[in-house]
């Protein structure tokens, strides 16, 4: 990871940051293995440069963006909460830019209703994508409603803690949607498509009863197998003093995003 300059922003959670070492060694990135330490241990061979992101589908100006071009968009530092569907959370100082800024450049058509995202497939660099026992089908795919994608909180992150993204955190560019469970924030993106119908998503395909398209953080809607009412903040409390804290609706971003879901039954649309 190289130093990465960014301008300060007002998007800043007023809570202690999760230590950088925790942010970069406690990861879910199944392309590098299913254990928390696997991504940091197995991502050494991954080459995040050169890189390009193809934007296609229902847009006026489809285009392949080189990473350098994306880095020219104004980079901001934003400190967000991150809540994993497994019941743990972090506070991370990301660097990135609003996804909307990129979408504006390709001019989505009026018929576009959703945005789908795709992670790179490189079994030779990503050990979790090879071998005979693979937890998920590749590529990893995710999606958002267009209004969610255009929301000012939704960013494409290119760095954290003042540096470019480490491979295990989704280098060189990943999505961050802070009011949704972490798996929505797809990593190492190579393709973004504007589409008309709700796109397929990896975890929903894998187990639709447990992982919905929306996957908004919601303490009132439990995962079928575990409660979502509380969370463990990673790096706090150690072994003897770990204290679970209450999970907030929309991960504490309800004021900004609840209006997106007016009239939507959040229990049925989990």
């Amino acid at each position: 990871a190289a130093p990465l300059a960014a301008s300060p922003s007002s998007f800043k959670v007023n809570e202690p940051l999760t230590p950088k070492e925790a942010v970069t060694t406690y990861n879910n990135f199944y392309e590098f293995g299913v254990n928390k330490e696997d991504p940091s241990q197995n991502a050494g061979a991954f080459k995040p440069t050169p890189w390009s992101v193809k934007i296609d589908g229902m847009v006026g100006k489809p285009k392949v963006f080189g990473l350098e071009e994306l880095m020219k968009i104004k980079q901001e530092e934003r400190t967000y909460r991150m809540r994993c569907v497994e019941g743990w959370s972090m506070v991370i100082p990301w660097i990135g830019f609003p996804l909307a800024a990129l979408l504006d450049q390709v001019e989505p058509l009026g018929s576009a209703k959703y945005v789908s995202f795709e992670t790179v497939v490189r079994p030779e660099e990503m050990p979790g994508q090879g071998g005979f026992f693979q937890p998920l089908p590749w590529p990893y795919i995710e999606g958002l409603r267009l209004d969610e994608a255009r929301h000012p909180l939704t960013i494409l992150a290119t760095g954290l803690y003042g540096e470019t993204l480490p491979n295990q955190n989704g280098a060189p560019i990943r999505l961050v949607v802070p009011w949704k469970y972490g798996f929505k924030s797809i990593k190492s993106i190579v393709r973004i498509s504007l589409v008309e119908k709700q796109p397929e998503t990896t975890w929903k395909n894998s187990n639709a009863r447990e992982y919905g398209f929306y996957s908004n953080v919601n303490p009132a809607v439990d995962h079928p197998r575990w409660s979502q009412a509380t969370e463990q903040r990673i790096g706090e409390g150690g072994f003897f003093g770990a204290k679970r804290r209450a999970t907030l609706p929309f991960n504490g971003y309800a004021d900004q995003v609840a209006s997106l879901y007016q009239g939507l039954d959040l229990k049925a649309n989990y």
């Binding site: 060694t25 406690y26 928390k36 463990q232 790096g235 072994f239 003897f240 770990a242």
Partner: peptide, 15 residues
């Protein structure tokens, strides 16, 4: 390991 920080950042779950 858990008590001395050797089990990572979520030692309770890990243990």
């Amino acid at each position: 390991q858990a008590a001395t920080g050797g089990l990572g950042f979520n030692p309770v779950k890990e243990f």
